[in-house]
Amino acid sequence: MKRIFFLTTAFLLLSFGLFAQSIKVAAAANLQAVIKVLQADFKKKTGIEIEPIVGSSGNLVNQIKNGAPYDVFLSADMTFPETLYKDGFSTKKPVVYAWGSLIICSNQDIGFENWERILLTHRVKKIAIANPAIAPYGKAADEVLQKKDILVNIKSKIVTGESISQVNTYITTGVVDVGFTTQALVKDPTNKTKLYWQIIAPDSYSPIEQGIVLLKRAETNKEAEKFYQYILSPAAKAIFLEYGYRVK
């Protein structure tokens, strides 16, 4: 009887291991640090594990359209989630979970009181911006530079990152002199690089409305629904605030 009991238990444990799956969450690159905190807090509250897949919003959308098995998409804007909704990848309209904050940043103390002028000087040789076509923070930076009427003059200095996380690497390692990135970088306690930065006036670019959408493949997944609701909860909003995002 003991042998039967142990065999049955082993079979059940094996079966659970085979069929239990974590929630796959496609997360925009600007969430690279905060998603880890959200992941830990959600697991602490529910016991449910999520598996974050971090990348530029545009690339993640392309992966979803090509069959990537993601359950939830946390974008850096609303345009990409709305596109997925319109194309039938979700039957639930996306909603805003946070508003992003664009900053100019460097690991050098070059002074940002008049950053527009500094970018035009010989002191700044390389400027990192995420690819505007696939990264909303890159799009916001491009918009700012056009509005300031200096984009053409600094075009040769621009180093394009595939995502905002790549831009962050360029900034922290000194590959570039300055970069346009998310405020979450300087709010991240795990970042040990001393950084100098300044917030870009919010009225100089379109609001960075970051949207979440529950994807069609997860519509009957109660655990994915729980994570979706968690991101919109006061607990998650408090974490976003700590990392420099605005919430309502």
Rank of each mutant, 00 (worst) to 15 (best):
R3Q: 00
I4F: 14
T8E: 03
A10L: 14
L14T: 15
L14G: 14
S15G: 11
A20R: 06
Q21M: 07
S22F: 13
A33F: 13
V34D: 01
I35A: 00
L38E: 06
L38Q: 07
E51I: 10
K65A: 10
A68L: 10
P69I: 12
D71H: 15
A76I: 11
A76N: 15
D77I: 11
T79I: 12
S90T: 07
T91V: 12
K93N: 03
P94K: 06
V95Q: 14
S101V: 13
S101G: 03
L102N: 15
I104F: 01
C105L: 09
F112M: 06
R123W: 06
N131C: 04
I134E: 07
P136F: 03
P136M: 03
A141E: 08
E143C: 02
V144E: 01
V144S: 00
Q146F: 08
K147N: 09
D149K: 05
L151A: 08
L151D: 05
K155N: 11
S156V: 06
V159W: 05
G161C: 07
S165G: 08
T173L: 02
G174A: 11
G179P: 06
A184S: 15
V186D: 06
K187S: 13
T190V: 06
E209A: 10
K216N: 11
N221M: 14
K226Q: 13
K226F: 01
K226P: 04
F227Q: 05
Q229P: 00
Q229G: 00
Y230R: 00
I231G: 05
I231T: 13
I231K: 12
S233T: 04
A235I: 13
F240Q: 03
F240P: 03
E242S: 15
Y245P: 06
